[in-house]
Design a binder for these strands. Structure first.
Lengths: 337, 337
DNA sequence: TTGTAAGCGTTATCAA
DNA sequence: TTGATAACGCTTACAA
């Protein structure tokens, strides 16, 4: 009686075990499990019974090898600390889950090098990649897009699929709101120079404002954090800014708090508008007026795009382009006469 | 000349391509790439050159098959919307990245069923699982821990590895602080009944308080969200509560804001203490006094524990148990006479 | 409808 | 030190 030396890595049951128990060939097990209905009903039931009994679960790695599919999507984030990212992650994770997919994440902490390294490592083991607020340069992204289905969130790039929150409507509302209050010039607080979305918002604000005879000045680039926002205060005061639109809520909140600390009153001395409507933007003092972005929808849409590219039936296609919307709260008011 | 029909899923180069170019056997390529130094220096260089030229990258799925290792860790979260989770995710992702590992996430949105499903799907394709603030029952967790290395964050369970923020010191500071201000009773606002950490905090608060002759009353369980916190206000007012410690910052902030809306003054009419020191807890009005938890360290520690179990050299072991600390801000004051 | 067998890209064992 | 070759667990032509 020769003692088998099992080389099995783990002890988990395989289709061979199921096949033996069900009295069929392993390939039949595979078929029964993957193409239900296209097989004799009785054998199919036998196989399922055996699988249940052994608590069989297929090995995703082994399956990925012949199929070339991992049922996994990579999500690369620049800063997980930014609450706006939570919406995107939840949207993506939920949509992926509903379609039998799993989300792999990596964070670049705003560093292009880290982002490049993380993406490089992840790309080989996923069916597609979502870059949220990527800080990578265009060339790297284009190259990456050649290897795997790739979707950009909040960034446009020729020849690369992208999902972008439609900001124009929100910006129009915001500029109109500010103008109605009596402001005649607006300062845009830019984000990082590597942020496409920051430049995009600047451009749209510029465009909308010039159509209304309002002056736009830009301050930046800035680090898109509380500190980055706070650091601009002195500059803004020197410019005698009466209304500020910040690249995102986090910066806007940073500025708001710096102002309060310096005894500078918001909104009477300076109106502030943010972007995103993140967790926390409504409990600053005063609460922040902001342009709400439909973050969840962005995440969902991105995974749907990936799966379309992969050829997975996504059934319920989410609605059209998520559209921004102004949320007026307490940080905007008429300028001091 | 027979035309090959390549069944190759993708077009990526394999060790066969590298081997051919370098003029060696595929197994030599594998060795050159994985056990550097334990091979002839010249062949090693030849192989590396060929690999570089072809831009070869190993296929993680193929590698996982014989080794049984995926270089991947699963991180299951209950609610990604809670900013406290950002710290854990960043800590975990960073530590994993530094050790050549990748983090796979899934969110349960506070639902035990969803959590169970997500974990089930993920467990087969990772080397270990981290459950952050798990809402699973003990039995399920114990069973899971039998299959794969598993680490619990902020939850203790016999026979299962866990990483827990040491709250006692922080709670002692908080209770002392409240007592010093003149409070003689404290209401604890419990989290969900499925939250081990909520029960743990209740027990420690109870213990610390009784040692100091302070009365503790518990209100809950509650949903650990802004709404959940806000919903407790009327009850607290009815109880004539002067000092409240909430299960977490999110609930504390919800309560704080509800109080403000009802014209109820914090801290003069009611002192509030939170837990976690999340993003946003310092810009409420008044800013929240809270017990800060070292979230980043928790995430790091958890992945280190997993990797130890897997047998990976983690080199720099992170410091000992992360310890909580009171951060006094504006939401606590002496009770009204 | 089911069985047979080849192949996915690695690693690991055994010789050479 | 290197080359052959058999796994790893699964899918998928091709035959039966």
């Amino acid at each position: 009686m020769a003692t088998e030396k099992p080389r099995r890595a783990s002890t988990a049951p395989t289709i061979y075990d199921v096949a033996r128990l069900a009295g069929v060939n392993p390939s039949t097990v595979s078929r029964a499990l993957n193409t239900p209905g296209r097989i004799n009903a009785r054998t199919e039931e036998k196989v399922h019974a055996a699988a249940r009994e052994l608590r069989y679960r297929s090995n995703p790695m082994a399956r990925a090898l012949p199929t070339g599919r991992t049922s996994t999507i990579g999500l690369i984030l620049s800063d997980i600390t930014n609450p706006m990212i939570a919406g995107i992650v939840r949207g993506a994770a939920t949509a992926a889950d509903a379609l039998g997919y799993t989300v792999v994440i990596a964070e670049s902490q705003e560093s292009p090098e880290l982002e490049s390294r993380a993406t490089e490592r992840i790309v080989a083991s996923v069916d597609g990649v979502i870059l949220a607020a990527s800080r990578l340069d265009d060339a790297s992204i284009t190259e990456l897009a050649g290897e795997k289905p790739l979707v950009l969130i909040n960034r446009a790039l020729d020849g690369v699929e992208s999902v972008i929150g439609e900001v124009r409507a929100g910006i129009e509302e915001a500029v109109a709101h500010l103008q109605l209050l009596g402001h005649t010039r607006i300062v845009y607080l830019a984000g990082p120079s590597t942020s496409w979305m920051s430049r995009h918002r600047a451009a749209v604000i510029q465009d909308v404002a010039s159509g209304r005879g309002i002056d736009i000045e830009v301050v930046g680039p800035n680090v898109p954090t509380l500190e980055g926002g706070a650091a601009t205060l002195s500059r803004l005061v020197a410019m005698d800014a009466t209304a500020v639109m910040a690249y995102n809520d986090v910066m806007a909140i940073g500025l708001l708090r710096a102002a309060a600390e310096q005894g500078f009153d918001v909104p009477s001395q300076m109106s502030i508008v943010g972007f995103d409507d993140v967790f926390g933007s409504d409990f600053t003092h005063p609460p922040l007026t902001t342009i709400r972005m439909p973050l969840l929808a962005l995440g969902e849409l991105a995974v749907h795009r990936i799966l379309e590219a992969v050829g997975v039936e996504t059934a319920t296609e989410p609605a059209a382009a998520p559209i921004a919307q102004l949320v007026v709260r307490g940080s905007t008011a008429r300028p001091r006469a």
